[in-house]
Design a protein around this nucleic acid. Structure first.
Length: 584
RNA sequence: GGGCCCGUAGCUCAGCUGGAUAGAGCAGGGGAUUUCUAAUCCCCAGGUCGGGGGUUCGAGUCCCUCCGGGCCCA
């Protein structure tokens, strides 16, 4: 709708003043009395044309009021207010009924290759609330991009290299040894020191250890004398429920590595399961370790060296990120010869670039925001344009029960897992509520409210609108014995005569503008606001208008109207990954 | 100490590439069902947009500063 008006205005500018200008704004005024669409174009032209905005607005309005698409075009204090004609709205609404989702589609992306990387939680523990929020935001964005014809790849980066994974192995092995009646005490105690300091203490580690024990029995109670290869083969043979990527691929050099690899396999499977509970599936699981295996990290460091951005200090290799806006230079290779996370991160992003993505969106926890300047700096060094990588920050989720905060702490192992939340609240409510607030501000998640099945809970409010409409069509079939096709209804749109009905049609038609806005601004939370608004408008209408049993023209016209509303709600919910139920 | 985010109605939040009289939900009170789902609807209220200054024809929106809260880094 906006684009439609904008084009008309541009034509007039050309005609009247011979100027080209696309910088003016076309928007929905807050106040309905200012019409369906308004533009500030006159203000922007005033200077160049040496005329008052009021005068310009009048001239443009005058010219455009001949257009049949508009009922009125008014110049008010320099603004130009447009009101669509009834005919135009009905024509568009019919189009929408016939084209369905395609009506809202627009070729924004033109097949542009886009990667969205999200969640990417360390595979050392189950997903918690914050990950869930990032997952929903990233996934919804991906759906929006797909809708607008971007070629989207959803990717999860697995931090499967480095100390955290080592610590996972330590923790599992420690718990495993705890359960050995006879064991290598010295080994156990040494391991205990690391465990006490940095180990993972969640219950889930004990479960992983038990699973290991189920498979190999007590064969690891004396780790030093254990036959690693034999045990590995036994795991491969007996573990049948999950794919064993790491255990299979990597021959361990010590016991901890073996347990780490098996732990990784278990954890990643866990994470996939958690994600499937919230209706999320990734296209690519990208392994950090593969960057080392394929020597991409080394290659990258050499490349940067060649460009003169790397120097040695204190035995370590530093990257001159401060030359590109970072506070200071960063270590990429430590003096002990190991690479930092930063090094593999650069290699990873460089790899994304080489894979041909024209745009990359990273969804990160807000606690990583300090990391942005160095990553951006490194990309500049590689001559990658600065708008190639967009980073969206997701703020924390705080959980409230009975008005009190449920505290989370990963260290102590008392965090709230996403899985528990999903079990308690349900997938739809969780997804919806995660999108009720702008993602870069903290979210308070009220468990009691989320579970309530009433108007308190916007999820059900919106879903109920959809289900109600389904109910009306069900009832129609019961009474009149036949299923209705949209095609039969379309022509009846002409019989809609009330102002509310016109308003409803407009609200639905504007969803396209809304979707485009949401996508370009990467603001998926606005979807919920739109849907709540539309659902509210429908519920209001429903309570004041009878549909079935009315005179035929009226009945069918109203059925056409609510069909359009239903399709729109369904599409909106689809894009959020929330179900649109037929009945509730 | 440096950086980032936030501060809008009693509560939870929209609105932020400047635009016309600042919005919604909840909480409180009152009402609506012989009817296609009451998980619904209708009526009643509330604001120094954290304070101050600046830019502008116009500031909740941009800039500066202060206050308060959160996070990251040192």
């Amino acid at each position: 709708m906006k684009e439609f008006v904008k084009e008309r205005v541009e034509n007039v500018l050309e005609e009247l003043y011979g100027v080209e200008n696309r910088t003016f704004k076309v928007e929905k005024p807050k106040d309905e009395s200012h019409g369906d669409i308004a533009t500030n174009v006159a203000f922007l032209l005033a200077k160049g044309l040496r005329k008052s905005p009021v005068k310009i607005a009048e001239e443009i309005a005058q010219r455009l009021s001949e257009d049949k698409a508009f009922k009125t075009v008014e110049a008010v204090k320099g603004f130009i207010n447009f009101r669509f004609s009834e005919d135009f709205i009905k024509k568009e609404f019919k189009k929408l009924l016939l084209e369905k989702d395609d009506y809202f589609r627009e070729n924004l992306g033109d097949g542009l290759k886009v990667q969205i990387e999200y969640v990417s939680a360390n595979p050392t523990g189950p997903l918690h609330l914050g990950h869930g929020r990032g997952a929903v935001v990233g996934d919804t964005l991906a759906r929006l991009f797909e809708f607008f014809n971007y070629d989207v790849v959803k990717e999860y980066y697995i931090n499967d290299a480095g100390r955290q994974v080592y610590l996972l192995g330590v923790s599992i092995l420690y718990r495993y040894l705890e359960g050995c009646k006879e064991k290598d005490i010295e080994f156990f105690e040494n391991l205990g020191k690391t465990f006490q300091q940095d180990g993972y203490r969640g219950e889930y580690v004990k479960e992983l250890a038990e699973r290991l024990k189920d498979i190999i029995g007590n064969k690891l109670c004396f780790p030093k004398t254990a036959n690693l290869e034999e045990i590995r083969r036994e795991i491969l043979k007996k573990e049948r429920d999950i794919p064993l990527y790491y255990t299979e691929k990597y021959k361990p050099k010590d016991i901890i590595e073996l347990v780490s690899n098996y732990g990784l396999d278990l954890m990643i499977e866990e994470i996939k399961k958690d994600l499937s509970l919230i209706n999320i599936e990734f296209d690519v699981w990208f392994s950090e370790r593969s960057l080392y295996d394929d020597e991409l990290v080394e290659e990258l460091i050499d490349l940067l060296k060649g460009k003169g951005y790397i120097y040695e200090k204190g035995g370590a290799l530093w990257l001159k990120t401060s030359e590109f806006g970072d506070d200071k230079d960063r270590v990429v290779k430590r003096s002990d010869g190991t690479y930092t996370y930063f090094a593999s991160d650069i290699a990873y992003h460089y790899n994304k670039f080489k894979r041909g993505f024209k745009k990359v969106i990273d969804v990160w926890g807000a606690d990583h925001h300090g990391y942005i300047p160095r990553v951006k700096a490194s990309l500049s060094m590689l001559d990658i344009p600065s708008d190639w990588l967009e980073i969206l920050l997701i703020q924390m989720v705080k959980l409230f029960r009975g008005g009190k905060e449920v505290k989370m702490s990963k260290r102590a192992g008392t965090f709230v897992a996403l899985k528990e939340l999903l079990e308690e609240v349900g997938q739809d409510a969780v997804r919806f509520i995660f999108l009720t607030k702008r993602s870069d501000t903290p979210l308070d998640f009220d468990l009691d409210k989320a579970k309530e099945k009433s108007s308190e809970n916007p999820v059900y409010y919106v879903q109920y609108a959809h289900a109600r409409i389904s109910g009306i069509f069900r009832e129609f079939k019961d009474r009149y014995g036949n299923e209705l096709k949209v095609e039969e209804l379309v022509e009846y749109v002409d019989f809609l005569s009330e102002e509310v009905e016109e308003k409803l049609m407009k609200k639905v038609l504007f969803f396209k503008d809304e979707l485009i806005d949401i996508t370009l601004k990467r603001d998926p939370h606005l979807l919920t606001y739109y849907l709540i608004d539309l659902a509210g408008a429908f519920h209001h209408y429903y309570n004041h208008h009878r549909i079935l049993g009315m005179e035929e023209k009226i009945m069918f016209s109203r059925l056409a109207l609510i069909k359009g509303i239903q399709e729109t709600i369904r599409l909106g919910l689809d894009l959020m990954g929330v179900k649109a139920p037929q009945r509730m």
